[in-house]
Design a protein around this nucleic acid. Structure first.
Lengths: 107, 107
DNA sequence: CTATTATATGCAGAGAACCATATATATTAT
DNA sequence: ATAATATATATGGTTCTCTGCATATAATAG
């Protein structure tokens, strides 16, 4: 990868909320409302950051009923996050989230 | 490292010229004029980017006569660059550079 | 059909980053 | 002392980024 392309990847990582989203997604797929609960940011804000990450092809989305689930799509980003943030060990269920996983509807 | 601090490191890497400078520095220490020759950018521009990297504590400088030599100071950045840019194998001597290394004055 | 819930998009002001140009300082050579 | 070379800083205009707020769409429930 050339410097231009590589710097564009780092650009995506150079933002605390995007970083937190990617940290969550490297551990498991999450819907938007889950990421809202994790970050404590407004829904529109999360959707905007997800769009940026989607357009950079670092994440992909998959619709399931009312929810849209996002997952990490870049092995390089996964490796870089492992190296910089260490092992991911984030809570599975959040009290502030009503998503199918957090409410126990899905495993 | 928290998301805020980590994102600040990535911020430094999210710029093609800074990335090229760090790529050079992970292989060997370089003076400013060498980095000028490597990047093809004006001297003032390089000095500005070096100041940003210096203030972020990713590089350090050492004066030697007329020259100022910079070197990489962060193991984390070195590891991340190894992972993203691969093995560094950049030319030792540049025709456009008059620095002590390039002109053969120093080994 | 209407209301509700989940998600996406559009827009705009504030601030930050980028980069050029001009200038300052420090070292060495003549 | 003067000139040349290497490096640093100051300043400013332009362009991006961030982020809040308003609104749009899509799915499901009643």
């Amino acid at each position: 990868m050339d410097y231009e392309t590589t710097s564009e990847v780092f650009q995506m990582l150079s933002h605390p909320v995007r970083l937190q989203i990617l940290d969550e997604l490297r551990q498991r797929e999450s819907c938007v409302c889950h990421l809202q609960a994790v970050t404590g940011r407004p829904q529109a804000y999360i959707s905007q950051q997800l769009r940026i990450l989607r357009e950079a092809k670092l994440v992909a989305d998959e619709k399931d009923g009312q929810n849209v689930f996002y997952h990490l799509r870049s092995d390089l980003v996964r490796e870089v996050l492992d190296q910089t943030l260490g092992e991911a060990d984030l809570p599975r269920h959040l009290p502030d989230c009503n998503c199918p996983f957090c409410s126990g509807e899905k495993a």
